[in-house]
Design a protein around this nucleic acid. Structure first.
Lengths: 314, 314
DNA sequence: CATATAAATACTCATATGGAGTATATGCGC
DNA sequence: GCGCATATACTCCATATGAGTATTTATATG
């Protein structure tokens, strides 16, 4: 290993760090953006950085003035068509970061956005959006049937069925990336610049982002939706104390679907992840709710050994 | 994003591709190594490569003369202490690759190794190895108690308990990396060169590998052990036709623990992942077993929608 | 002050799932 | 013919999970 490569093979590779920084405020999932919502925070990895993570921290905190909490790696890629300059290869290393949204003024154009602005078809908390059966699915089917080859047609049909939960397939909230990719291939999102102007302008497909940032965001959402089910990561997004309903609303915001309240509480309590503070809050209207905090000692253990949050699959 | 960085900040970054190439033969899990078992196949990412994956394919197939099947990314890192040369930063991108072991002669020093050679404490197929209670755990506890600070001590004790399934914790075969990291911190593996010669020479801690290759191998094993439970990836390691017991033995080889035969068969069959070929084999001794093959049509679907293999957790 | 309302909290119930044990069938070698 | 090793089939039970319903406790409002 580590063949000593010639310097001229190596020296013009650059590395870029990109963050999907997520938070939840007042029951809505947010993502930190710059450039007026058109891009995710990012910056080059430089020689001065201690590690990839610290480099990411530096860039994001500089661009957004918002501290990062939990960080995990998403994916690294270096597809040739990403680089405008052919002599220069760019390796992009993307991360998922979680934070408690703060009131502090973000820097220049950095703003929190509801992530369903970019993926309107992903929010099923009040049932499937009408745009799915009315617009999205019909256009996808039109794309599938437009294929000349029969096997391509049936392949497209199957992918649509799985990704969007048609026929005998259930809606799977984790398939965020697969859905985006189908829409991209069908040239229904603006980033696929083969898309027809009429399609891409439709608000049901959401606004485009720079380069492949929306794809990276989809990857981050998918990862987070998968992870909340078996790792106690919601905690990173919650304030120090909270009610069980607030916790449930956060999970629902991330998962994009409702959960059964009694079952949710049962699971939370039997896992002993939280403890009562003794205080209650009346801010919610209705019967005042007990306030809870996370049991950080258990967190250390569950962070590695696993936990369960109910996001129903039927 | 994409701040135009000065060229002098970017140009001396190199990227290295590393593979954990796994296979299963005659009921044993293998990993492809080079340099006489001291290193994983790897090589620099170059301008000529179409993508990271194709660069990896090129290097590994050149070094080992073995084709790669399934590939997935593991992790990307760029810790400063990895680079010997301070002026040059190396980004390492590691992958997990799966293949059917072939009889073809591997190139020069490329050889398949049983991966439990490197992690003797990970093979629990015939119960926990004696070295665990006899040698490893006592030394870990000695390390824990050697800490001056009381909170460090209890922190170490807890980590040992979780990672190695002591006290009321169950053995969790997925914690391969956590176990290696504890052993590393306790300076019981040779890679932690603070280790005392007597410790590192003990065969119970396995042979060292170059740089952090053994850590990367641990990451790959952990990922594979986690993944076989919910994605149909064992298939990538099996020959075209096989008996259910052979399939079970493969899963057990990877997971490092035995599974309940009747339950295993029940799950395999009700998932409709395999179909009978009609043929039987008498090679196994005892009653001849039916031969099966995978249903590739279902694979496409389950690859994304999920599947279940029973690797007990108690 | 009664009443509607919103939320918290507490049960019940049917079914799915997963772990474990046991029994029977079939071919081979001696 | 008999033991042996494996394949194959079935039963049993504890727990997890999804879904439904009822009750309590506060605030807001007329």
């Amino acid at each position: 290993m580590k063949q000593p490569a010639k310097a001229d093979q190596r020296h013009s590779i650059a590395a870029e760090l990109i963050a999907v920084l997520a938070a939840v405020t007042s029951g809505q999932p947010r993502v930190m953006t710059i450039q007026n919502g058109k891009a995710l925070p990012s910056g080059p990895f430089e020689l001065g950085h201690r590690s990839l993570q610290s480099g990411l921290r530096g860039w994001v905190e500089h661009q957004t003035r918002h501290p990062l909490g939990y960080i995990e790696q998403l994916y690294t890629f270096a597809d040739r068509d990403r680089a405008g300059d052919e002599a220069q290869r760019v390796i992009s290393i993307s991360y998922l970061a979680l934070a408690r949204e703060e009131q502090a003024e973000p820097a220049d154009k950095a703003t929190w956005r509801n992530w369903y602005d970019y993926f309107p078809w992903e929010d099923h908390r009040d049932g499937a959006p009408h745009a799915l059966p009315d617009v999205i699915i019909p256009r996808l089917h039109a794309w599938a049937e437009a294929a000349g080859d029969i096997s391509v047609r049936s392949d497209r049909r199957l992918r649509i069925s799985i990704a969007f939960g048609l026929d005998d397939h259930a809606w799977n909230e984790e398939l965020v990336l697969q859905r985006y990719e189908v829409l991209y291939e069908a040239a229904l999102v603006e980033e696929a610049h083969r898309s027809r102007a009429e399609d891409a302008k439709l608000s049901v497909f959401g606004p485009a982002m720079a380069a492949d940032h929306r794809r990276i965001l989809a990857t981050g959402i998918a990862r987070l939706r998968a992870k909340i089910k078996y790792r106690p990561v919601v905690f990173e997004l919650m304030p120090p104390v909270f009610t069980l309903l607030q916790l449930q609303r956060s999970v629902e915001a991330l998962a994009g679907r409702q959960v059964h309240k009694p079952n949710f509480r049962r699971l939370i309590e039997q896992q002993e992840l939280v403890e009562e503070t003794g205080a209650v809050t009346a801010d919610t209207g209705g019967r005042p709710a007990k306030l809870f905090r996370f049991r950080h000692d258990v967190l250390a253990e569950r962070a590695v050994a696993g936990t369960k949050l109910p996001v129903s699959r039927a």
